[in-house]
């Protein structure tokens, strides 16, 4: 019995990330965009008591859906919080080790999980395209115990050399590199989630390692969309495509405007655990 399902690349990234989240952990999430939507999806679907903080000092809000607009709907974003503090205070909490996971989006990622959200182009003074800057990502990626990065599977995103390192992964990958740079011990990137794959990091070399694969993609498909060769785990986990309930909640409740979940469409034919790619849109320019 086969079934056809259609979803966007970003819907897959958000659903996969949400499945990694649990109610007994504390999350420090980017204040808008895919990270916040993934957290809200997890709260709606399987972890209603999951608590998160955002950098404006809001601690453990219970926002009403749909997801409030980035910054502009601040009273919605901080609705029924456990506490309203400020940016320094939530930074202190992360520094103290309270925040288990940071959830962030990245423009470029390298093989040690370092990432860029500042600019792409030849030089800082001459960017081809300039982005908002590190924002709170540098502190989140430094201070939380583990970091989940969300990004699309594209060669220009998985690069050999970042145009600018806004935020730290395992730096040069050597043992103790983060500690030598003054960052807290035992911290670092944990997962990188794309529409095709989930990566973790090799414990010894700290190099990025493919550990999960969408059933409609192959290892070659993933590697073709990277500038460098990742390590590949001996057994790969199957990443389920977005389920009907996940998509319904995401589209109808969390982000009905489609502002965050929009992306390139992917259609697959499902047969049990396997899935065959029917068609996918080409990546949009600038996505």
């Amino acid at each position: 019995m086969t079934e056809t399902r259609t979803f966007t690349d970003m819907e897959q990234i958000i659903c996969t990330s949400a499945r990694l989240m649990h109610a007994d952990k504390l999350y420090f999430t980017a204040i808008g965009g895919p990270p916040l939507v993934a957290v809200l999806l997890a709260k709606t679907l399987h972890a209603p008591n999951l608590a998160y903080v955002v950098e404006d000092g809001t601690i453990a809000p219970q926002v009403q859906l749909p997801a409030p607009m980035f910054l502009i709907e601040a009273s919605g974003g901080s609705y029924r919080a456990a506490s309203w503090t400020d940016m320094n205070t939530v930074g202190f909490h992360a520094g103290l080790g309270y925040l288990d996971y940071g959830i962030l989006a990245a423009v470029q990622v390298d093989e040690y999980g370092n990432f860029n959200s500042t600019f792409v182009g030849p030089a800082y003074e001459r960017p081809e395209r300039r982005f908002g800057g590190p924002g709170g990502a540098n502190e989140i990626a430094s201070l939380c115990w583990r970091t989940i990065l969300m990004t699309r599977q594209q060669g220009r995103k998985f690069v050999k050399k970042l145009d600018f390192m806004s935020s730290p992964g395992f730096l040069d990958g050597s043992a103790g590199a983060r500690e030598r740079a003054g960052l807290p011990a035992d911290t670092g990137p944990w997962r990188v989630v794309t529409e095709m794959a989930v990566f973790d990091f090799d414990e010894e070399s700290h190099r990025i390692r493919l550990m999960g694969l969408a059933p409609w993609a192959t290892v070659d498909d993933v590697v073709a969309e990277m500038e460098f060769e990742p390590l590949v785990a001996s057994t790969l986990e199957n990443i389920e495509v977005p389920g009907e309930e996940e998509l319904a909640v995401l589209r109808a409740q969390v982000d009905p405007s489609g502002r965050t979940v929009r992306g390139r469409w992917i259609t697959v034919e499902l047969d049990g655990e396997s899935a065959r790619l029917v068609e996918q849109e080409a990546p949009a320019e600038g996505a």
């Binding site: 502190e139 390192m165 806004s166 935020s167 730290p168 983060r178 740079a181 960052l183």
Partner: peptide, 16 residues
């Protein structure tokens, strides 16, 4: 503080 280190952001005015 326990961040900025190791990144390009460090280069502006942080000292280790």
């Amino acid at each position: 503080l326990r961040y900025l280190g190791g990144t390009d952001v460090f280069k502006t005015g942080t000292k280790l």
